[in-house]
Computed example of a mutant assay.
Amino acid sequence: MTQTSGRTPTPPTREQVHAAPKVLLHDHLDGGLRPQTIVELAAEIGHRLPADDAESLGRWFAESADSGSLVRYLETFDHTVAVMQNGPAIARVARECVEDLAADGVVYAEVRYAPEQHVSGDMTLDEVVAAVQEGFEEGMAASGGRIVVRQLLTAMRHQARSMEIAELAIAWRDRGVAGFDIAGAEAGFPPTRHLDAFEYLQRENAHFTIHAGEAFGLPSIWEALQWCGADRLGHGVRIIDDITVHDDGTVELGGLAAYVRDKRIPLEMCPSSNIQTGAAESFAEHPIGLLTELRFRVTVNTDNRLMSGTSMTQEMFGLVEAFDYTLEDLRWFTINAMKSAFLPFDERLAIIEKVVKPGYASLIGQR
C-alpha cells in the first residue's frame, strides 16, 4: 500500500512486527486467559473443564471458537468467567493480561470486561473493578513503564444493568477506567435498548464504544452512531455493506459509510475473531483491506487472544502476509489507534511522539 520514494517497500519480518510498538483498543479480559491459569483456578473452586491440561484446554478453546457462529463463540466464555469470581483470581488474570501484552510489544491497551458477569460469588461490582485495577497496576509496575493499560467497563446487551455499569464507569473514571461498552449477541438486542445509559454518559462527558456491525448489519451501526452517539465502533466490519466497488474499479460510498469515514469514527477491527465468527472469510478477503485503501480510521485488535489463539503481533503479521503491508502501514494503524484511545489528549500525544514514532523510526532505519 505505502510507496517509498526510489524503491519498492519491503514487508517486515515477524520479528520486526513483534518489536514494533503496538496499540490495542479491543481486547476482552475474559477472552485472554492463559490456559494454565484456567486449569489452576478451576481446580481451586472445583469447576469442571472440558480438558484437564493446559495444552489440551487451549486447543479446545480454539476449536470451539472456530465454528463460524458468534453465539457458539460466546459460549466458550462460560469457563473463563467461571474462574473469575473472586478478587485474587480476577487480579491474577488482570496482572497476567498486562504481562502478556507487554511481552508482545503493546505499549497502550484498553481492556474490556463485564463486571456484572463476575458477581456470582460474594463480590460487589465495585470490588470487581478494584480487583482488575489491582492486577493492572501490578502488571504495569512489573513492566517497568513499558505499557499503559486502562479498563473499559462493558454491559451485556441482553441484560438490563447498563445504567448501573455506566454509573460505575463514571465512579472509576479517574481511577483506571477509560470508558464504557456494550457487548453480546447483536441480533434482537439493539443498542437503543440501553439509550438511557448512553445519554447519561454523554451528559457526563464520558467516552464509550459499542459492539456493532459484526454479526448484524448496517442498522446496528446506524443505531450505535446516530441514536446512541458511540465514539468508536467495536468491529464495524459490516460497514462494507454500504460500499460498492463497480466493475471499472471505482468505489461508491453509501451515506452511512461516507459519514463514518468523514467523521473519522474509529473501527476496532479484529481480523482473526471476525473470521472465526463468520464476519469475514479470510485475512486476504477481510474488509480491512478495502477500508484501509479508502482511508477509514482503521485500527487492528485481538478481541479474544485465548479463543483466537492470537496476539497483536499475529494480527498485524497476518495483514502483512495478506496485503504486503510495510512498517509504515503498521505505524499508520498504530497511530490511528492511539489517536482514538479514550485517554486525555496530552497523554495520547506523548505516547505517539515519545514511543510509537521513535519505535517505528528505529525499525525502519534498520532496513
Rank of each mutant, 00 (worst) to 15 (best):
I210D: 00
T154M: 08
I165R: 09
A183P: 05
A166D: 12
L195I: 13
T192E: 15
L195H: 13
L225F: 00
A185I: 06
T192L: 05
R193I: 02
A185M: 09
I221F: 03
G217K: 09
H207D: 14
V148A: 15
Y200Q: 06
L218H: 10
D174M: 06
D196G: 02
A183C: 09
V148E: 15
A215I: 07
V148L: 14
E199D: 14
L153S: 01
H207A: 12
P190L: 03
Y200R: 10
P219V: 06
N205A: 13
I170T: 14
V177M: 13
L153K: 05
H211R: 04
R193C: 01
A206V: 06
F180W: 07
A171L: 10
G144V: 06
S162Y: 11
G144A: 02
A206Q: 13
A212E: 14
G188H: 12
G213F: 00
W222R: 10
S143C: 06
Q202W: 07
S143Y: 09
T192V: 07
F198P: 05
E204G: 10
E164I: 02
Y200K: 04
Y200H: 11
A183W: 08
L201D: 14
R146S: 15
I182L: 01
I221T: 03
E204P: 03
R150V: 00
L225Q: 11
E223R: 05
R146C: 08
L201E: 15
E214I: 04
A197L: 06
H194F: 04
M156C: 07
L195E: 15
H211S: 02
A215K: 07
A155F: 10
E214C: 04
A197N: 05
A171H: 11
E186S: 00
L168E: 14
A160S: 12
G144I: 08
R203W: 11
R193M: 08
A183H: 08
A224W: 05
G188V: 01
L218I: 12
E199W: 04
R173H: 12
P190G: 11
M156E: 13
Y200A: 08
R161D: 15
S220M: 12
S162Q: 12
E186C: 00
R173S: 12
R150A: 00
W222P: 00
I221E: 00
A166Q: 10
W172A: 07
A212P: 03
W172C: 01
I147V: 10
A142W: 09
A155Q: 11
A169T: 12
A166M: 02
A171F: 11
G144F: 02
W172R: 07
P190F: 00
Q151R: 13
D174I: 03
H211A: 01
A171E: 14
I221V: 10
I210P: 00
A206L: 08
Q159K: 14
R203A: 13
F198D: 13
E186H: 06
E223G: 04
L225W: 01
R157W: 13
E164F: 01
S162P: 04
A178I: 06
E199P: 02
